[in-house]
Design a protein around this nucleic acid. Structure first.
Lengths: 119, 119
DNA sequence: GTATCAGATTAAGTTTACTTTAAGTCAATG
DNA sequence: CATTGACTTAAAGTAAACTTAATCTGATAC
């Protein structure tokens, strides 16, 4: 799979895909002889994982550490801890989101009452 | 209320409070004769609102527009739309968060199974 | 009365996460 | 066989949201 196909499939620009690889957010992608990237299933799965994490707002730094540990096939405890830490953050974020959505619901209702009367 | 009291109350640095005011994210705060800010209840409520929105990830730009409209006491329709737009974004974000938390749950479980056996 | 400390302003600097630019390679098409 | 278009790298640039630095003012502590 070429980089532009992967780009299309996951909605990530080719620039960003190369950037992710360069900084170690995804492991090195297999290449053809001429140096052109040829994403296999494993590489795609990494892209998919990173896309999921990033669009939830997981930071790049901890992900880089995680990816490096998986590559080196070590640090199982540490890897689990990274996942636990990130999940904790996302849970807190979800809670904050809930609160703010409630507030917005309340405010929007207020406008709903007000607008028909005065318009 | 002084700026440092407000800072403590909401967990926002004084620098950030001044920054927010400067860019119009909160309306001008009342001052004492010597120019020192004296937050009244209204000002505090703005801080509280902005804190809530910002910690949920609502962008500054739309909030500035919203605050300006409220200040000018106009654009009710537009104001409501801003709130609707932001709520829609937060709902989408909440959904993405849910997906990613699920994925993390799954992965963490996997480590939970694996670790006791091999450690 | 002078030192220190909260508060003020303006402008420049920082961080995170990309994005764009510059410059080059290579395969295929007209 | 030149040109088009996708691919490559390295380095510089950008956007959003603060943060820090430099400098100043005025009130209270010793």
């Amino acid at each position: 799979m070429t980089i532009s196909e992967v780009s299309q499939k996951y909605g990530i620009t080719t620039d960003t895909l190369r950037y992710y690889e360069r900084i170690g957010l995804i492991p090195p992608v297999p290449r053809r002889k001429n140096g052109i990237r040829d994403y296999d299933e494993k590489a795609c799965n990494w892209v998919s994982l990173v896309k999921c994490m990033r669009s939830a707002g997981v930071q790049i730094e901890p992900l880089i550490e995680y990816v490096a540990l998986v590559q080196a096939d070590k640090g199982m405890e540490r890897r689990k801890n990274i996942l636990l830490e990130q999940r904790a953050k996302l849970l807190a974020q979800a809670e904050q989101l809930r609160t703010t959505i409630e507030l917005l619901n309340y405010k929007i209702e207020h406008y709903e009452e007000w607008l028909p009367k005065n318009k």
